[in-house]
Nucleic acid binder design. Structure first.
Length: 320
DNA sequence: GCAAGGAACCGCCAAA
DNA sequence: CTTTTGGCGGTTCCTT
């Protein structure tokens, strides 16, 4: 059974928003063909706001398979983000097409500022959604009835998926794959991507999938708590108490099970979360530090410097 | 970038 | 006799 994924591009759309999720679907397809001998699971296509050719935000001229107005049906419809979102959101014809296609698609969503286009089309009323950091307020302005989630990397509201940034778009695509083909395949693809992207350290940027992996661990509950409360007191004594073990025993068991001692594990997750925030556009470093549980900016800076050899501000400038 | 105090980690050991 | 537990203290790393 072929599942069609349609990605909308428009002038000034962000190429990575298109490429990231499509990469996930493409890899999943290939993996399933190789391991199950089945026909490709996903057929991906990029459609243009109009005509067949759009200039992306990086200057690349992308030739789309067709215009969105020509698409009769698809199974998953995604809208990319990018600097051109505002023009796209002011194009009544395009919004009409977006509404029409979303209306006849089992599920649809957006990456980054693509949410603003969905909102402009009136598709996010009474929905939970998110978008790029810097545009959360714009989102509530466009659609006052949208429940804007300011914390999440990506948000699902029934059949509508919105995500915060490029890496979040990948994360969201993985969630769609998980819904279609199950957790184990989604995890495999996530791992493959992590290797492909050569992200050192760990895979925590795919937060949801790490969370899935945690289900296997005897410390699952504790780990989910940590994942969801990175700004809480997560010193060893506190964690041990939460786990109902003596400190000594906790450190011993945790290290044996997880492979890293608790404090280090927490620090790694905090760093990874901070990277996510910086990659999705930078709120004040102070705010990043607070949300991730680093006491202050200095602590954040030290951990970055030591683990990545780069300052947070430089990291944001380079990847954000 | 430094000193001083604190937290984390882990080997060791005795008790359960 | 083996395994698990948890206190102790030294070293290292981190925070202030």
């Amino acid at each position: 059974v072929t599942h069609r994924v349609t990605m909308l591009a428009y002038p000034g759309a962000q190429m990575l928003d298109v490429a990231g999720p499509l990469e996930v679907f493409a890899r999943t397809s290939r993996w399933i063909e190789e391991h199950h001998g089945r026909q490709a699971a996903y057929l991906v296509e990029v459609v243009a706001s109009e005509g067949g050719e759009v200039e992306m935000s990086n200057g690349l001229r992308l030739i789309a398979s067709r215009a969105i107005s020509d698409v009769q049906r698809t199974d998953t419809f995604l809208v990319a983000g990018g600097v051109g979102w505002a023009e796209a959101a002011n194009d009544p014809g395009l919004l009409q097409s977006v509404r029409r296609l979303a209306g006849r698609t089992p599920r649809f969503g957006s990456v980054c500022t693509g949410s603003l286009i969905l909102a402009s089309a009136g598709l996010l009323a009474k929905r939970a959604a998110t978008t790029h950091w810097a545009y959360l307020d714009v989102l509530s302005r466009i659609e006052p009835n949208c429940h804007v989630d300011r914390e999440s990397i990506f948000v699902r509201s029934d059949h509508i998926f919105t995500s915060a940034g490029v890496t979040a778009g990948i994360d969201m695509a993985l969630a769609l794959v998980e819904a279609d083909h199950g957790r184990s395949i989604a995890l495999k693809i996530a791992q493959e991507l992590v290797m492909y992207l050569r992200r050192p350290g760990n895979q925590a940027q795919f937060s949801r999938h790490i969370a899935a992996e945690l289900k296997e661990s005897p410390f699952a509950e504790l780990q989910s708590f940590v994942l969801e409360n990175l700004d809480a007191d997560l010193r060893v004594a506190a964690l041990a108490a939460r786990a109902g073990l003596s400190e000594r025993q906790f450190v011993r068991r945790f290290s044996a099970e997880i492979g890293t001692p608790p404090a280090e594990w927490v620090r790694t997750l905090r760093l990874e979360r901070a990277r996510q925030y910086l990659e999705q556009g930078t709120p004040a470093l102070k705010e990043v530090a607070r949300r991730c549980g680093f006491g202050d900016e200095q602590a954040l800076r030290r951990v970055f410097q030591r683990n990545l050899g780069i300052l947070p501000s430089d990291y944001a400038a380079r990847f954000g």
